[in-house]
Simulated assay, not measured.
Amino acid sequence: MSDSTRKPRFRGANQQGRGKDRGQNRGPGGRPAWRDRDDQADGPVILYGWHTVTAALANPARRIRKLFLTENAARRLAEENIDTRVTPEMVRPQEIDRRLSPDAVHQGLLAETDALPSPDLDTLAREGIVLVLDQITDPHNVGAILRSAAAFDVKAIVTTARHSPEATGVLAKSASGALELVPIVSVQNLARALTQMNDLGFMTVGLDSEGTENLAGVALQAPLALVLGAEGKGLRQLTRQTCKVVARMDMPGAIKSLNVSNAAALALYIGSTRLGLMS
């Protein structure tokens, strides 16, 4: 390991702060966190935090470009016999702080990596559950959805190449390592992708408060694709029309709607229970 006083040469010290609304979330280097994937440069994916970085280190499909560690983090990795895979650069915590937003909890680890490849729809397993996200732009929500997806053994998440957050920074931290466990399929046109999934035998179920059936009463079949829309907008019209079923989730309390990440977790529980995946 290099000397602890050696400083990394981070490309730009711009902070990754939160904007006043979700459309202004900033990613590493000052980029909008929701920026269209088609517009991404060949820059690195930024991963930070213990679970996020150690999961990346354990994933052979993840190419690590650079790894920055504090002395405490390096000691903990050594104690837990975690292979860093590349020669890390030792830095002070403040060096990582300057790369991230003021409220980022990095725990002394930051990695620059390549993005993971996006599988094709026709390679998806014809079993279990797949989640489809219709222009959900908040990286915190998508990260939380990824974490729930990993807990329920979701086979993949399908999302649009445009109007979706980059799989980096805040999203990766919110996912707490799940980014390495759940493949993300990026598609250009969601309606066409849903049509293809229908043809492949998936039961596509859109979730909407105005759905004609209660999800708990729908005769669900595997492979199942649960389709979630953005908060506020919900499912787009063409998305609704392409789903085989549009269902709602009835709530017994005074508040009838849930945050989209909470709705995803509840829908996954209902779907997993109905498909017999919980036993």
Rank of each mutant, 00 (worst) to 15 (best):
A41K: 15
D42V: 08
G43Q: 12
P44M: 05
P44K: 07
I46E: 15
H51G: 10
H51C: 10
V53A: 07
T54Q: 05
A55Y: 04
A58E: 01
A58D: 05
N59M: 00
N59A: 01
A61Q: 05
A61Y: 05
R62D: 05
R65D: 04
K66C: 08
F68G: 00
F68T: 00
F68L: 02
T70C: 05
A74D: 03
A74C: 10
A78E: 12
I82P: 09
I82T: 02
I82M: 03
D83P: 06
D83C: 06
D83H: 02
T87R: 14
P88S: 01
R92H: 09
Q94E: 15
I96P: 10
D97Y: 13
R99T: 10
P102D: 14
D103G: 14
A104Q: 09
A104V: 14
V105Q: 15
G108L: 07
D114Q: 01
A115M: 08
P119F: 11
T123Y: 09
L124N: 09
L124S: 08
A125F: 11
A125L: 13
G128S: 10
I129F: 14
I129D: 11
L131C: 11
V132G: 07
I136K: 01
T137K: 00
T137R: 01
D138I: 00
H140Q: 05
V142H: 00
I145D: 07
R147N: 04
R147S: 07
R147K: 01
S148Q: 03
A149F: 14
D153N: 15
V154C: 12
K155D: 13
K155C: 09
A156Y: 13
T159N: 00
T160F: 05
P165D: 01
E166C: 14
E166N: 14
A167T: 14
G169V: 07
